[in-house]
Simulated scan of single mutants.
Amino acid sequence: MRQLLNTLYVNTPNAYLASEGNNVKIIIDQDCVGQLPLQNFESIVTFGYAGASSGLMQKCLNQGIALSFMQPNGQIKGRVSGKPTGNVYLRRTQFRVADDDQAKLKLARNFILGKVFNQRWVIERFIRDHGMQVDQAKLKAVSVTLKDGLDKIQRAVDMESLRGIEGNLATEYFSVINDLIINQIEAFSFHDRIRRPPLDRVNALMSFAYSLLANECGGALIVNGLDPYVGFMHVDRPGREGLALDLMEELRAVIADRFVLRMINLKILRSSDFKQAPDGAVLLTDEARKKFLTKWHENEQKTLQHPYLNEKIEWGLVPFAQSQLLARCLRGDLDEYPPFLWK
């Protein structure tokens, strides 16, 4: 398993990135406010609008460092990455599978199996850890529904029925998210998943976390020689990384949702950490986004025992590990793609 290196998050909106020697320089109002060795990072994510120099981009390309540009709400604007890695025959296989209804259904079922399995265990863990503070009967009922849904997913005969099952189970799961908020309940109430734009604080945090996770999944797929734009569950759409969205399905609850709930319940973020845009969208303030990214990075450094590989790895390597397993499956080294199943 590869080593987990750091990600440099540049949060200041007017920061311009440049290079000097083998360092990345952070420049604000023509003053250098920071200079860090490029060799310490495997990716750079900037939320600034000032951009980056061509010299820095060239060095990132040469050293395999992904340079991603994101909007303040976490939506990715673009990514600079080097030459495609891996074998072209792997990508040709990926494209053939994407055009084969039964082959892609087999993979899509496993993505959604992992998603629903992990959603259920987020709820079960919460019952175990906070049983005196939650409506156990309500949470148990949804947990049972999700467990029963696993059989339905395995029996799905086409993509349309699979998407219908997944949609119904997602509604069940999100119906109890508000019950998992046990602190700051009035400031962080959640009723429905609202994406574009997020209109409340919980949705704003979820959207931001999902965007970070999608960017990491896209980068992990590229490193493993796959095309992040050609998915199996998500239909092709210009500019959308369908396979990255496929891969992150099984990781949403266990990586992003748990993180968001922890930020709320531990009172790391408060109502004062948000602002409202003219279109009604709720966004993190610049300072709050810095806190979010700091804790996100800390969370990625924590370790777990990977359920399939049976190796101890950092959470930040889970997208890479799953991308690697997907590539092995497409090459025929594995009979089936093993989803990430967390307990």
Rank of each mutant, 00 (worst) to 15 (best):
L5A: 13
V10W: 01
T12K: 06
P13T: 02
P13V: 02
Y16D: 05
A18F: 07
S19V: 14
S19Y: 10
G21S: 07
N23H: 10
K25A: 11
I26E: 09
I26D: 06
I27Q: 09
P37M: 06
Q39P: 02
Q39H: 05
E42N: 15
E42R: 15
I44K: 13
T46S: 11
F47M: 08
G48H: 11
G51L: 14
S53M: 05
G55A: 11
L56Q: 07
L56I: 12
M57G: 04
Q58L: 13
L61I: 13
N62E: 14
Q63D: 12
S68H: 05
Q71R: 09
Q71E: 09
G74T: 04
K77E: 11
G78V: 09
G82P: 13
G86E: 14
G86L: 14
R92S: 11
T93R: 09
Q94L: 02
A98G: 00
A98N: 01
D100A: 10
Q102K: 14
A103L: 14
A103F: 03
L105I: 03
L105C: 09
A108Y: 00
N110G: 03
N110F: 02
N110W: 00
F111V: 02
F117H: 07
F126I: 06
R128Q: 11
H130P: 06
V134R: 03
S143A: 15
V144Q: 15
L150Y: 01
R155N: 10
D158F: 00
G164K: 00
G164W: 01
I165A: 05
D179T: 03
N183S: 12
E186R: 10
H191C: 09
N203T: 07
F208Y: 09
L212V: 06
E216W: 06
A220R: 03
L221E: 08
L221S: 08
V223I: 10
M233L: 14
D236H: 12
D236F: 09
D246F: 02
L247V: 03
D257F: 14
R258S: 09
R258M: 10
L261G: 04
L269M: 14
S271C: 12
D279H: 13
D279T: 14
V282L: 08
D286R: 12
F292N: 02
T294M: 13
W296M: 14
K302H: 13
P307E: 01
E311M: 15
E311I: 06
I313A: 08
I313P: 04
G316M: 00
P319F: 01
P319R: 02
L326S: 10
A327T: 08
C329E: 03
L330V: 13
R331H: 13
E336W: 07
